[in-house]
């Protein structure tokens, strides 16, 4: 199975450890993974800003980068959703968010990883409601949660339930800047929920949400850390623990 590793631009530049963990994890699970070096950005920032024409070249570029792969897997629900919705000619079933790929395609049932920590799971909206990685709390369906399912395979993870399991953190791309006051308030409210449950590490599928939360955590010196879920599932989170 030939898998193309999609490392979204801000992960590539700011959070390479999430991409490294994704790569290592996929390899350990037997995938033949390659990282097309020419990849850049999926085009979502431009499209969400209302400037979709400025994203078209990016869309074509992504499509060209990942030609010939059976699957394209990336550690970001948001960017993957954008690719699914906007990259021309991309058949739906080729672009996958990491956890979705592990559950739906690889059908992983156990992971060789340990991470002793109280973990709060941040359900990022685009993965949740766009890719349906879990049942959103407003939907009247049997509950399921891919990310929680995978986290529960990791030794020592103590997954902590939250008062509001899937409220938006307020990142939202340009929203975080244009609607700064509300964005910050939304993030602070999420953090308060995690703090109430005495969470030690907040994890999730999207580093962008976690970047926003981390920005607040560091400014306020809160006793919390953020970690991309790939790092926990890969066991590389343990090395950085403490």
């Amino acid at each position: 199975m030939k898998v193309g590793l999609f490392a979204p631009c801000y992960i590539d530049q700011f959070y390479p450890q999430a991409a490294v963990a994704t790569l290592e994890l996929l390899e350990r699970l037997g995938c033949d993974v390659a990282y097309p070096r020419g990849q850049t950005c999926c085009g979502q920032p431009m499209a969400n800003a209302g400037c979709a024409p400025a994203a078209e070249a990016a869309h074509r570029h992504v499509a060209a980068c990942f030609e010939g792969f059976d699957y394209v897997v990336g550690p970001s629900g948001s960017c993957v959703l954008h690719l699914r919705e906007h990259v021309e000619g991309a058949p739906d079933a080729r672009y996958y968010e990491l956890c979705q790929f592990l559950v739906e395609v690889l059908q992983v049932e156990r992971l060789d990883a340990a991470f002793a920590c109280r973990v709060g799971l941040h359900a990022s909206c685009h993965g949740l409601r766009g890719l349906r990685l879990a049942r959103a709390s407003e939907r009247q369906e049997p509950p399921f949660d891919y990310v929680a399912y995978l986290l529960d395979m990791v030794d020592g993870v103590e997954r902590v339930p939250l008062d509001r399991p899937d409220e938006c953190c307020g990142f939202g791309g340009m929203f975080a800047i244009e609607e700064e006051a509300v964005s910050v308030r939304m993030g602070a409210d999420r953090l308060a929920d995690h703090l109430r449950q005495r969470v030690e590490v907040i994890t999730g599928t999207d580093m962008s949400c976690l970047m926003h939360l981390e920005g607040l955590i560091r400014r306020r010196n809160l006793p919390l850390r953020v970690l991309h879920v790939a790092e926990i599932l890969n066991g590389s989170g343990e090395a950085r623990n403490g």
């Binding site: 992960i11 590539d12 959070y15 390479p16 490294v20 990282y35 920005g215 400014r219």
Partner: peptide
């Protein structure tokens, strides 16, 4: 910097993932 009014900017790494991949793989 509206981002930085209430939030820290990310701590950035020496190497991008692309650079890491080129060196290691």
């Amino acid at each position: 910097n509206a981002w930085g009014r209430a939030r820290e900017l990310p701590r950035v790494p020496d190497r991008s993932f692309g650079e890491w991949y080129a060196a290691e793989r």
